[in-house]
């Protein structure tokens, strides 16, 4: 395959950045999108140019590092992560625009890499349970009804990639946060801190500069794990409940 890549290049956080065009040849349709970028970078290095910086880690769709905007869609045209996207989703001669996630809460570090530590701070604000560590309890010590366990697992699929924020017209992080809150809220272990969790996490979310949710659903459509919008409604309901308990 022969492609024309239009990639956002930005040397650092302070640089203004801009789009640079790279023609590329000899791409196999069995390559993953990241392997295609590896090929590009090898060429750039051979020519003594600075390679394109992009994030990746597991390359098997579970770590959430590799998110980029491809032709105006988070993680590109398929519902999957960029590392699991293959070049067969494109056609010979295509022009592909590659950009970093755009949100002021996710500042660009370099080229396609953004700083997603705002998500970590939201988790630190309450996305955990407090339990004594030590020997693991017996698996059946705390029974969890299957329905709750299933919903918790569904929400726990979130890999924190940030596609929801990238796709949201308001750059809101509510799908990410709703997933964590639903995940922990479905378990008995999540109950003691349930009110405090939602109050603290949502406050941190707004503090980080993410926008508000307008329930449009772009996040869920872009989510590589297909997490449904109802986790956001769950979070909203939990916040109302927490306010009632407080007053």
């Amino acid at each position: 395959m022969k492609l024309t890549l239009k990639i956002w290049r930005q040397s650092g956080p302070e640089d203004k950045g801009g789009v640079v065009t790279y023609p590329i040849e000899g791409v196999s349709e069995d390559m993953s999108f990241l392997e295609m970028l590896d090929v590009l970078n090898e060429g750039l290095i051979a020519e003594g140019e600075e390679p394109v910086a992009f994030d990746s880690d597991c390359r098997e769709g579970i770590c959430g590092m590799c998110g980029v905007m491809i032709n105006g869609e988070a993680h590109g045209p398929e519902r999957t992560t960029t590392c699991q996207l293959h070049m067969r989703s494109f056609r010979d001669g295509d022009e592909i625009v590659i950009e970093p996630w755009r949100a002021d809460a996710f500042p660009v570090i370099k080229d396609l890499c953004v700083d997603r530590s705002a998500f970590d701070r939201i988790i630190q604000a309450g996305g955990y349970i407090s339990a004594n560590t030590g020997s693991a309890p017996d698996a059946h010590a705390t029974p969890v009804p299957k329905e709750n366990a299933d919903r918790a697992f569904m929400a726990a699929e979130c890999i924190g990639c940030g596609a929801c924020v990238a796709a949201c017209p308001n750059a809101s992080g509510m799908l990410f946060m709703g997933s964590k809150i639903t995940h922990l809220g479905e378990f008995p272990q999540g109950q003691p801190e349930r009110d405090a969790r939602v109050v603290s996490m949502t406050a941190q979310h707004d503090h980080e500069g993410f926008g508000g949710c307008t329930n449009l659903g772009e996040c869920s459509r872009a989510c590589p794990k297909g997490i449904p919008l109802n986790v956001i409604s769950q979070m909203n309901g939990d916040l109302l409940r927490a306010q009632r308990h407080r007053s």
Partner: peptide
């Protein structure tokens, strides 16, 4: 607030019903 949450726009954005 939503305006301040994304001050740098995308170069390319797929036409969205949501928008």
């Amino acid at each position: 607030r939503a305006g301040k949450a994304r001050t740098t726009r995308y170069v390319q954005r797929k036409g969205q019903w949501a928008t």
